[in-house]
Simulated scan of single mutants.
Amino acid sequence: MGKNGDDERGYFSERWSEPPAKAAAVEKPHYHGHRDRLRERFTAAGPDALPDYELLELLLFRLIPRVDTKPIAKALLSRFGTLAEVLGAPVALLQEVKGIGPSVAVDLKVITAAAQRMARSEIRGREVLSNWTQLLDYCRSAMAFENREQFRILFLDKKNVLIADEVQQIGTVDHTPVYPREVVKRALELSASAIILVHNHPTHAF
């Protein structure tokens, strides 16, 4: 945040709005054409045609206007590893990447929340045990960068279809208590035939 409370988007917008000394000499920034070409590729070939950093660029176009977002996208991926891990990172860690301020960090978390809800919808009503990759991707995006350990339970019916996904306990950075009686009680309440127990290991070094 700036000293007057402006976020990074306002800062860049204000800088862009400063009148040039000689209007005739002003050229469009190189990334303007790049943005158009990237959007065209996305529209024509679909998201699978784009690597993670370009898909992240597309997200950042709207969040940080009038700025070359390719270096920011690459810096985020260099810090966190994958697109899912970028979106799963806490707000405080996102802001440690140059170019990401408080407003953009929160906007990325809004996108994360929408993506997690979509992922939950995709595995709900499907046979979870037959699609481990999708299940692991969902768990990773939901928990990978939590700064405290979570004990999460996926409740399944007799066809191994997801009934509910619940965080049963939240612990410290390296410990979370597990109470078998509470796990069994909740499984009975939901009439679950099977459960998947998941917990994370908070990352301390980046």
Score class of each variant (00 low, 15 high):
residue 103 S to T: 15
residue 193 S to Y: 11
residue 110 V to R: 09
residue 27 E to F: 04
residue 163 I to H: 01
residue 10 G to I: 05
residue 33 G to E: 11
residue 188 L to E: 14
residue 58 L to E: 09
residue 47 P to Y: 04
residue 113 A to T: 11
residue 168 Q to F: 13
residue 7 D to K: 10
residue 12 F to N: 10
residue 59 L to C: 05
residue 83 L to A: 13
residue 202 P to A: 07
residue 21 A to P: 00
residue 198 V to F: 09
residue 92 A to S: 10
residue 78 S to F: 12
residue 189 E to H: 11
residue 16 W to C: 02
residue 166 E to H: 12
residue 23 A to M: 10
residue 77 L to F: 06
residue 91 V to W: 01
residue 201 H to G: 10
residue 45 A to T: 02
residue 134 Q to Y: 03
residue 138 Y to V: 01
residue 176 T to R: 05
residue 151 F to S: 08
residue 153 I to D: 01
residue 116 Q to T: 07
residue 142 A to Q: 11
residue 8 E to W: 13
residue 60 L to R: 05
residue 36 D to P: 00
residue 30 H to M: 11
residue 98 K to H: 12
residue 63 L to H: 13
residue 116 Q to N: 15
residue 201 H to W: 15
residue 92 A to Y: 02
residue 180 P to A: 08
residue 59 L to F: 10
residue 57 E to G: 05
residue 119 A to I: 01
residue 99 G to V: 04
residue 65 P to A: 05
residue 115 A to P: 03
residue 172 T to V: 07
residue 75 A to Y: 04
residue 155 F to E: 04
residue 15 R to Y: 09
residue 10 G to T: 08
residue 82 T to P: 00
residue 124 R to K: 05
residue 31 Y to T: 07
residue 74 K to W: 04
residue 126 R to L: 02
residue 147 N to V: 05
residue 7 D to G: 13
residue 50 L to W: 05
residue 167 V to Y: 02
residue 14 E to H: 14
residue 53 Y to E: 15
residue 110 V to N: 02
residue 70 K to C: 03
residue 3 K to P: 05
residue 21 A to F: 14
residue 176 T to D: 00
residue 163 I to R: 05
residue 179 Y to T: 09
residue 66 R to V: 01
residue 165 D to V: 10
residue 134 Q to E: 15
residue 181 R to T: 11
residue 42 F to G: 03
residue 61 F to S: 01
residue 5 G to K: 12
residue 194 A to I: 04
residue 193 S to I: 03
residue 34 H to Q: 09
residue 50 L to I: 06
residue 100 I to A: 02
residue 108 L to F: 08
residue 8 E to T: 13
residue 48 D to Y: 06
residue 43 T to L: 14
residue 31 Y to W: 15
residue 34 H to K: 09
residue 5 G to V: 12
residue 40 E to K: 10
residue 124 R to A: 03
residue 202 P to G: 06
residue 66 R to K: 05
residue 89 A to Q: 08
residue 181 R to M: 10
residue 166 E to V: 13
residue 75 A to L: 07
residue 82 T to I: 00
residue 137 D to C: 15
residue 179 Y to G: 00
residue 202 P to W: 04
residue 70 K to I: 07
residue 119 A to H: 09
residue 13 S to D: 14
residue 150 Q to F: 09
residue 130 S to G: 13
residue 61 F to N: 04
residue 51 P to K: 07
residue 2 G to E: 12
residue 13 S to V: 12
residue 149 E to Y: 01
residue 103 S to F: 14
residue 107 D to S: 15
residue 78 S to T: 14
residue 169 Q to G: 00
residue 14 E to N: 14
residue 107 D to T: 04
residue 114 A to T: 09
residue 131 N to F: 07
residue 130 S to D: 11
residue 3 K to T: 11
residue 85 E to S: 11
residue 153 I to F: 04
residue 68 D to L: 03
residue 3 K to S: 05
residue 37 R to M: 08
residue 133 T to E: 15
residue 9 R to K: 12
residue 59 L to N: 03
residue 28 K to C: 02
residue 81 G to S: 10
residue 60 L to G: 06
residue 64 I to W: 01
residue 186 R to T: 09
residue 26 V to T: 14
residue 40 E to P: 00
residue 19 P to Q: 14
residue 97 V to G: 03
residue 96 E to S: 15
residue 183 V to H: 01
residue 182 E to V: 12
residue 69 T to E: 07
residue 98 K to Y: 12
residue 12 F to G: 01
residue 197 L to K: 04
residue 166 E to R: 13
residue 78 S to N: 13
residue 38 L to N: 06
residue 206 F to Y: 13
residue 130 S to V: 08
residue 52 D to E: 14
residue 87 L to K: 07
residue 27 E to G: 03
residue 2 G to N: 11
residue 180 P to E: 08
